[in-house]
Amino acid sequence: MIVKQFKDEMTGLERVMAAVTFQKPDRVPVVPQAIGIARRVLGVSMSKLSQDPDVYVEAQLQLHKLCDYGFDSFAFVYDLSVEAEAFGQKVIYPLESTAYADPNNPLIKTVDDYRRLERINPRETGRMKDTIYGTERLAKAKGKEYSVGGFVYGPLGVLGQLRGHERMFVDLMKNRDAVIEALEIITPVLEDYAVAQIEAGAGGITIDTLCASKTMMSAKLWESIEAPYAKRLADTIRKAGGAVMLHNCGGAPYFEEQMKWLEPVGISHAYPAAGCKTWEEHAAIWGKKVMHIGAMDPSKIGMVWSEEQVMDNCRYFIDTFDGCNGGFILAPGCEFPPNGTLLNLIAMCKAAKAYGTNK
């Protein structure tokens, strides 16, 4: 057993490794999904954080210090428009909220534009280049003691940023061949991007598979459209030596289909899997099949609840997944709100020590 090789107090990296391999760590690992909120430690705007990789890295390091080094993993993740921006999509950078693709000026304006999409080099282009650079900085600063991961938005998600999701879904019904041609251009770029992050020091890559959920499309449609391309991406990550994880904050994510196609070691999610009505049912069915990262309600823990309520909710999830042989990481189901309270983020770290310690 891996755990027996560790010292009494594990490093963050050792805790995450133990969770991935279903060995109980000294305490439940914590991944607060703290992206935009980190800028509050430095007092900078979201627009500054979203466009300056050095500021982003410094914000993460200072947030870790503020939390008494209580969370166990880092990742350089600006937002979901990074890949689209590199392809040429116009992005809006609000002063105090998350950057987003301009919905009124999509790069792909017509069906013919799918076929005009050009392949880019992520190592040289836009904020993809920033992410590779920032991942390397985080890995050098924290990688010996803490987990450092990479992040890639899934192929269909990137295409939705370039076209607009509503228009893309219509095109899937009426002009599927054009959509497929664009996915053939996007996927190799994402493969190069993932490999570059691994070479920069990321131990694994999280693929955001938002479309693989009932709130986005049917399981059958996802399998016929994105699954083969997401599989190519996952296989490339493994070939490069990285672990494959997924993030899906959609309602009723398709665990069965994603496990079949992508074979992840862990899934970050906000809701129980399709077919499960409660977290208890989800834990009973899926808890020992794949490591879980989640799944607290971000808006409540960041914007609504008191510290005590946050700690109580942490305890609920720790207890619910306690029978999963250690394969659980405490986290929000999606990004901790960028304008949330830092006190509640710190409370998550406290709760892991108070309720998630294994004796």
Rank of each mutant, 00 (worst) to 15 (best):
M217W: 01
M217I: 05
S218Y: 06
S218V: 00
S218M: 01
A219T: 12
A219L: 09
K220I: 12
K220Y: 14
K220C: 04
L221C: 14
W222G: 08
E223G: 04
S224G: 15
I225D: 08
A227G: 03
P228M: 10
P228E: 00
Y229C: 06
Y229I: 07
Y229G: 07
K231S: 10
L233H: 09
L233F: 03
D235I: 07
T236F: 00
I237R: 13
R238E: 00
R238S: 06
R238C: 01
K239C: 11
A240T: 07
A240H: 10
A240D: 02
A240W: 09
G241A: 04
G242T: 11
A243G: 07
V244G: 08
M245A: 12
L246E: 00
L246Y: 01
H247M: 15
H247S: 09
H247N: 11
H247V: 10
N248T: 11
N248L: 08
C249R: 09
C249P: 09
G251D: 12
P253L: 03
P253E: 04
P253W: 01
P253Q: 04
Y254R: 03
F255W: 08
F255Q: 07
E256I: 02
E257F: 02
E257N: 11
Q258S: 13
Q258V: 06
Q258C: 15
Q258R: 14
K260V: 08
K260W: 07
K260F: 05
W261F: 02
E263R: 15
E263W: 05
P264H: 05
P264T: 11
V265W: 05
G266K: 14
S268H: 13
S268D: 09
H269K: 11
H269Q: 08
A270H: 15
A270G: 14
A273N: 06
A273G: 15
A273F: 04
A274T: 06
A274L: 10
A274M: 07
G275N: 12
G275E: 10
C276N: 12
C276E: 03
K277L: 02
K277A: 13
T278R: 12
W279D: 05
E280V: 08
H282T: 09
A283W: 01
A283K: 10
A283S: 05
A283N: 04
A284G: 02
A284K: 15
I285C: 08
I285W: 10
W286H: 00
W286L: 01
W286Q: 03
G287M: 12
G287N: 11
G287D: 09
G287S: 14
K288V: 09
K289T: 00
V290E: 00
V290P: 07
